[in-house]
């Protein structure tokens, strides 16, 4: 374990190369628990810089229908927060460099205990967490436990976040900032590129952290457009949809690989 966190290292490297980060989201255990680690390696082989591993929850309030179904499939297959940590541990046996972030909801972490979670996440080789329903006001305790273990706290900023809150949130945030490009749930349509650009420029005045843009990115060209003024793109629903539609694990891997490769190429153009 080095002092520097894998997320920081990866973004520093990308910045040095003048490249954008490709952040990829899948739901842990979706498509079968035994197939998640191979799928994570496939993401990396196809050009992903950061893996966001969705922790399935019974009530994923901020997700659109595609990711909701991913959570339901994963839970039906026996996934849980503990099993997610075990999957990351397994992934780390063959990948020591790719940053892994857990994206999920507060209750499974509360149930495990925030301190226990932070310690277990660090042990497993997790690099950070984004807890969707833990806004800055409620995040203090978890943030401290995470920071003690050199883990990063990823926060969302939205088109409706006020100036005052942008200041507060960027003070608490570490690793990178996740900018939600539209009003709505994950997987929604209607991107407004002009507003994304203006908002990213505004957020830059508050923080030097990398800014990644997500919600509503469907393909290489939308990834490229939204990240033009940011440091990276987050893609989720289109990957979860591919896993859900695939007839088996190898078909899922193949399709996910194609999508990620196309986005990588578009971002590197």
């Amino acid at each position: 374990m080095t002092d520097q966190n894998r997320i920081d290292r990866r973004f520093a490297k990308l910045r040095g190369e003048g490249r954008k980060a490709l952040v990829t989201y899948i739901v842990a255990g979706d498509g079968g628990l035994q197939n998640t680690v191979p799928l994570m390696h496939k993401l990396v082989a196809s050009g992903a810089d950061v893996i966001e591993l969705g922790v399935p929850f019974s009530d994923p309030m901020a997700e659109g229908p595609v990711i909701q179904r991913g959570h339901e499939r994963a839970l039906a297959g026996g996934a849980s927060l503990r099993k997610c940590l075990a999957l990351v541990d397994e992934f780390r046996q063959n990948d020591k460099d790719t940053p892994v972030i857990l994206m999920g909801y507060a209750n499974p972490i509360q149930r495990m205990g925030e301190q226990v979670f932070a310690e277990a996440a660090a042990e497993a080789g997790v690099d950070g967490a984004l807890t969707v329903d833990l806004p800055a006001e409620e995040a203090g305790a978890l943030n401290s436990f995470m920071a003690e273990r050199n883990l990063r706290n990823i926060f969302l900023l939205t088109p409706t976040t006020t100036e005052e809150r942008i200041g507060e949130i960027t003070t608490l945030a570490s690793g990178f900032v996740y900018y939600v490009s539209l009003k709505g749930v994950t997987g929604a349509g209607h991107l407004d590129l002009e507003s994304v650009r203006d908002n990213l420029e505004h957020i830059r005045q508050f923080t030097d952290l990398p800014l990644c843009v997500g919600f509503g990115i469907k393909d290489g060209s939308s990834a490229r457009s939204v990240s033009a003024n940011g440091d990276g793109a987050v893609v989720g629903s289109v990957l979860v949809s591919a896993v859900g539609d695939a007839v088996d694990a190898s078909a899922a891997e193949e399709r996910v690989g194609e999508i990620v490769s196309e986005m990588r190429q578009a971002l590197d153009q």
Partner: peptide, 21 residues
């Protein structure tokens, strides 16, 4: 901030904060 002792509060995605405010 909406707390009754340790309970209550506002555990929502950032996307909802401005509407609640």
């Amino acid at each position: 901030s909406g707390h009754f002792g340790p309970y209550g509060g506002r555990f929502v995605s950032e996307t909802l904060i401005s509407a609640l405010d």
